[in-house]
Design a protein around this nucleic acid. Sequence first.
DNA 1: CTGTTAGCGCTTTCAA
DNA 2: TTGAAAGCGCTAACAG
Lengths: 334, 334
Amino acid sequence: MNIKEVARLAKVSTATVSRTINGSNKVTPETAARVRKAIEALRYYPNTNARALGSGRSSLYGLIISDITNPFFPELVKSFEDIAVQHGQEVLVANTNYDPHRTEVCVGRMLQRKVDGVAIMTSEMDKHLIEEFSHRNIPLAFLDTATPQRGISNIRVNYAAGIDAAVEYLTELGHTNIAFIAGPPSLISARIRKRAFLNIIKRKGIRLDDRLLEQGNHRTDGGHEAMRRLLNQSLRPTAVIASNDLTAIGAMGAIFEHGLRIPQDISLIGYDDIELCAFTQPALTTVRLSRQEIARLAFRALYNTHQTGSWDGAEYVVEPNLVVRRSTAPVGGV
Amino acid sequence: MNIKEVARLAKVSTATVSRTINGSNKVTPETAARVRKAIEALRYYPNTNARALGSGRSSLYGLIISDITNPFFPELVKSFEDIAVQHGQEVLVANTNYDPHRTEVCVGRMLQRKVDGVAIMTSEMDKHLIEEFSHRNIPLAFLDTATPQRGISNIRVNYAAGIDAAVEYLTELGHTNIAFIAGPPSLISARIRKRAFLNIIKRKGIRLDDRLLEQGNHRTDGGHEAMRRLLNQSLRPTAVIASNDLTAIGAMGAIFEHGLRIPQDISLIGYDDIELCAFTQPALTTVRLSRQEIARLAFRALYNTHQTGSWDGAEYVVEPNLVVRRSTAPVGGV
DNA sequence: CTGTTAGCGCTTTCAA
DNA sequence: TTGAAAGCGCTAACAG
């Protein structure tokens, strides 16, 4: 079952079939109709491999993520795919599983399939692997981790704005003993969040006490531990900001175990707004980081570069916003 | 950059390069080494499209799911991919978004890429689309929704066993007023769970009261509504089993809003064991449905058929198991 | 508007 | 063990 059979049945050349499939406007409507009927009749589906090979275009974009079971990614993947499909492109998703070797395998797959561009949404990616892409003029879009340059765009999240909003909100509620549970220092985005916290605290003239600064690992266990340490020292915070939602959720457990209530005794704010946040008890106030917007921008960055052929990488900025739920209240639990 | 260049640099024919890449044993180690060196030097990656076209093999399996943001799927996808990669196969994941049109598009993509087999993990899939695969001798693996036949395997979840375990556990805790919140009747797996509940209740000689039977929609809102109805009538249940976890989580909110405590006033059990369950307050007791096992079996079903060429579809059974957390307690909240 | 034909990059007989 | 060459199914000049 191939293009030849269709051509034979429709009594045209393979070229005409090809043109019909690709929506060329130089095919008489009648001819096209005949071809389409033949396609239906034979249940013909054009061979993508042959198409890509013959045309030199893959119409395929790569999307590299760390781990699909990390709640941050599914929505990102979905949004990216939706947009890609709208633009007649397909998406090849690859999980690195945070594993350098596996990452290399992923990159290899992308290269072998001749993708037209790759969105790299992981924080870890070796220089030499990036070189592999650039070397072949494959546009790249990063999340936070790159500086724009030839063929490379960056989606920058204005993390600081989110932290600022959280602190502003808490101070409006009267909080002054605000603790922060940072993420792993190896993660650039975690470092930025922490620095942003320190900055806004200083800017607002709030006392900054070392005892109110803890470190987690962006997982629930780390949040739990950190919160426990925070509760077992002399200075009790009235509010806590966590570097991400999982940390906050881990902290939640520690707070309850300590016999305290949220938000009456302690207000809690997370970061990212993963789905979970709406389902915790109480629902978690958090800083929303729109995966849809990230996906949209990443795709656009790639698409622009690839279509217009203008190879100046650009930087796109995503602004987070505070989502107030039930885990925050005025100090003193009024 | 193609196989010819590599051949030239290594001073062999393209056939030899091809053989080396494919690990043929009829290449002298020395020759192979020379070829590999050339590949390295040129940073050569074989073109997958050309390979598939030339060989007629795609080494690609399709995985069709409803929606990657549905918490049931990410782990399934990950496990499936892991196994596939271990077997030297790639995976093409497609979301139907519960949309018949989009489903058709997904199937088309699979067909166009000449997949070697497809795991269909959605509940909705038109007969004629299935025909499209069978017609081309593409092995299929379904989750629950098929009866084994030529080229078609089925992964059957023993839902009833899970429901039985839940009810057994609750009766051991002394519960006799056990309510059930069913899923949408359009879903075969939801119907099975409900029937299983009715059966075990009867078998154990527990009074079955219509007032203890409600219906949700497998989402949190449905669970919330159903639970509210359950609480606003004359017969108060001391325990509730929900058809899936999201339903249970929705019910949780309704219970709290009604001023009741979990598990002291009402015990609650979910189904599926999505990640969320461990994070609710209290953590949700539920029936675990191993996505890893489903993925493993689905892949094996496809792989067996495709490799051995034995086209008898088989049925594989997955046994769920009860995961006891903090949302269940003896009746009376002892 | 349609057909002819030469590739696209790799695999795989068939010969040597 | 290696090489030459004929496809795989489609696209895209080019010619008409």
